[in-house]
Write a protein that binds this DNA or RNA. Structure first.
Length: 422
RNA sequence: GGGGGGGUUCCCGAGCGGUCAAAGGGAACAGACUGUAAAUCUGUCGGCAAACGCCUACGGAGGUUCGAGUCCUCCCCCCCCCA
């Protein structure tokens, strides 16, 4: 099997690497799947929900799954669920999600495509990735036809035993959600039929849906296909992966700046570092194992490597280096701080009475409201030019400008520079 | 179709007609301690306001009351049981 990026993988097999890196949760038939992967270029897919026009850190795990698949010479397919997003997957949810309009979904698809192409090499070669929208084969079906051709293969009895359904028996499950499983199974069947896809991967909450797809492939295509699931990612503190103070951590630089993205990873819990290095970077095992040996405060070094690696994967080397520089300037002192999150204001704003600190904080996005800004000041959390401010009514004037900028800081970690345009 | 139980601030969840911006817990944020970690302790946690206070919120729309998250009517949604 050739590896097209020229590097020799540290692992002989995809499965072996997935296991070492912590991606492997369940597999439908590990032995046969291993044989398949060893013998031929295998096509595998993962579905992504276009519920927003950007993917977030939560999607990074499946993305990396596809990346590894491709690195081992196989062909990854990313399905964007244009059709299934209209239905809403009940897996892992407690209530019916809001339905999305076709226009929104279309818009979101574009953003996601763009992002995925930074991780996966798309093209027409044997192991080049493909991106497909399941609306293409789902949207024109007639109900009766679909029931007859596909619905006949599903046993309600069996569907009721699926976790995603069972767990909703108390809170309720609408018929439209109940059908999600069928649609996802149908996706797999179509991919198998039209693209020779033999493997579906996904989070462990997808197990039931994946199994349904495998059954359908066998029944309709007489094909043996496989499923592999990843563990559901929680941080050590039991929070869903990818949440920060400002909400979700996005892969889109416009939504989450590379600086904030970098900070997210530098700030992970000690207990998560090793796991994350394996899951979210492509570093070779020997290097990761070296970092895993670090103890105490040294773990910070491992976090920096983690942050740099992941930021590089998502935003590129340049942005990662800039974020690292900014972090160094802010937390270690000295260095180039030109890439710290900033905004611009005309010098005139600081003439006369000046600009109220409260407005400056809220405009910079450091605070959601002036009330919050006041509270923070009372708690001695706000610094201007490094000095703790205790006066809520402070006006920013020329005297606060140093080197053409005013530095704002909230708490230890949130920084912002107001660049004063002359 | 009939009967019963529900819809509360980010989440869970309590809430006698006034003292409810609403108990308690979680999450989150800040301060102390640290290592931009964890744990711990303390504080904060709808908006505007320096403050008095004003505004917006308890599924939706009306109503009764000096006064309603709390009572009444209608509507929407969810759960359970029966048909």
């Amino acid at each position: 099997m050739d590896t097209e990026n020229g590097k020799t993988p540290a692992f002989d097999s995809f499965i072996e690497e997935m296991k070492w890196r912590g991606f492997f949760e369940q597999c439908t038939d590990e032995k046969s799947l291993t044989e398949l992967l060893a013998g031929e270029t295998t096509t595998g897919y993962i579905g992504f929900d276009p519920t927003a026009d950007s993917l977030h850190v939560g999607s990074l795990l499946p993305i990396m799954g596809l990346v590894h698949l491709q690195n081992h010479g196989h062909k990854p397919i990313a399905i964007v669920g244009g059709a299934t997003a209209m239905v809403g997957d009940p897996s892992g949810r407690t209530e019916l999600r809001n339905m999305m309009t076709l226009e929104t979904i279309d818009k979101n698809l574009e953003g996601i495509k763009e992002q995925l192409s930074r991780f996966i090499r798309f093209g027409t070669g044997a192991s080049d990735g493909m991106m497909l929208n399941n609306a293409d084969w789902l949207k024109d079906h007639l109900y009766l036809e679909f029931l007859r051709d596909v619905g006949r293969y599903f046993s309600v009895n069996q569907m009721l035993t699926r976790d995603s359904v069972k767990s909703r028996m108390e809170t309720g499950l609408s018929f439209i959600e109940f059908n999600y499983m069928i649609l996802q199974a149908y996706d797999f069947m179509v991919l198998n039929r039209d693209h020779g896809c033999r493997l579906q991967m996904g989070g462990n909450d997808q197990w039931g849906n994946i199994c349904s797809g495998i059954d359908l492939c066998r029944r309709v295509n007489q094909a043996e296909v496989f499923g592999l699931t990843f563990p559901l990612m929680m941080t050590a503190s039991g929070v869903k992966m990818g949440k920060s103070a400002e909400g979700a951590v996005w892969l889109d630089a416009a939504r989450t700046s590379p600086y904030d993205f970098y900070q997210y990873w530098v700030n992970v819990d000690d207990r998560d570092v090793s796991r994350f290095l394996r899951l979210y970077t492509l570093m070779p095992p020997t290097e990761i194992e070296k970092l895993e040996k670090l103890q105490g405060a040294e773990i910070r070094e491992a976090k920096k490597v983690l942050a740099r690696e992941v930021t590089t994967l998502v935003h590129g080397k340049g942005e990662a280096a800039a974020a690292e520089k900014a972090a160094k300037a802010l937390f270690s002192g000295g260095g180039d701080d030109s890439t710290v999150p900033s905004s611009e204001r005309p010098a005139a704003d600081f003439g006369g009475a000046g600009l109220s600190l409260l407005d400056a904080l809220t405009d910079a996005g450091l605070m959601k409201s002036k009330g919050e800004a006041r509270r923070m000041i009372r708690q001695k959390a706000v610094r201007v030019g490094g000095e703790v401010i205790e006066d809520e009514t402070l006006q920013l004037t020329g005297e606060h400008i140093q080197d053409g900028k005013i530095t704002l800081q909230v708490g230890k970690k949130r920084h912002h520079h107001i660049l004063v345009a002359s």
